[in-house]
Design a protein around this nucleic acid. Structure first.
Lengths: 134, 134
DNA sequence: TTTGACCTTACCACCATGGCAAGGTTTAGC
DNA sequence: GCTAAACCTTGCCATGGTGGTAAGGTCAAA
């Protein structure tokens, strides 16, 4: 029994927004879905699984380009898990780089904030440091 | 002697791009600069300091809206350092939230990657987990 | 039949930045 | 003085992922 869902129900079932599902189709991440005579998109359970896959990959911060590659690997029985792992590790490297960048900001800004009294007076080391030529 | 720099030199002196300096003017972050007869923008040393201020605030991840506020506080001798510190702390909270989000991704994805052999076989726990309905 | 909840496409917006194109200006070398 | 290179100007388009809104078609329940 192929249960077919309209885009709103597919959105609820997958945790994506209908808007994004259309966008993913538009950008080539998803194949064009079936349509009713009136033009409504219809999704079968396999497609719902794909949408969930996408949502979970987005939750891990993968870009749509990465997800495109992951979907193709997923659907290719000839894949080598090496390729999947490599994508994951590249993404982990990006995540680590972003964390490091944010932690550096955090460290510098925390020090600045600590050195600012935060009272009613105009003196503020945060501004002084920002104004200081490097 | 007011040394005036053209936008390219101002860019080099501040570490911003000429493009971005124009954009900051356009978006109201900077007052319109003086121009030569030919229409070239000219920047004095005070404005170069402002550009450096902006660059340093950008390096700390402040949004242009935040920087707008910081610039106004900087230039207002009646400011209360409280206001500056509050901006810094709000930004620190955002930074901390992003770090936490990234660390969560990192943790989950590291576990997944560790459970994938990464060899020539198609079996891959990363894909299996992404495909699994939550 | 009406109403409300859905669906469609086609736009615009965000944020910060880069790129390119078509044209004007200035400067250095000859 | 001429030419070429290196500047400058504005204006438009693109990114990435998401949201909004508007104008219109469809469907189901009351």
């Amino acid at each position: 029994m192929a249960t077919l869902l309209t885009i709103g129900d597919a959105a609820k079932a997958s945790g994506l927004s209908a808007k994004m599902i259309r966008h993913y189709e538009q950008s080539g991440l998803l194949r064009k879905s079936a349509r009713t005579d009136a033009g409504y998109r219809l999704y079968n359970s396999e497609q719902i699984n794909q949408l969930r896959f996408i949502r979970q990959a987005r939750n891990l911060g993968f870009s749509l380009a990465d997800i495109h590659a992951l979907l193709e690997l997923w659907q290719n029985p000839e894949r080598e898990s090496r390729a999947v792992k490599q994508l994951a590790q590249q993404h982990l490297a990006e995540i680590a780089a972003k964390i490091a960048e944010l932690q550096h900001m955090q460290q510098v800004l925390t020090a600045l904030a600590d050195s600012c009294k935060g009272d009613g007076s105009p003196h503020c080391n945060i501004l002084n440091q920002l104004a200081k030529p490097t």
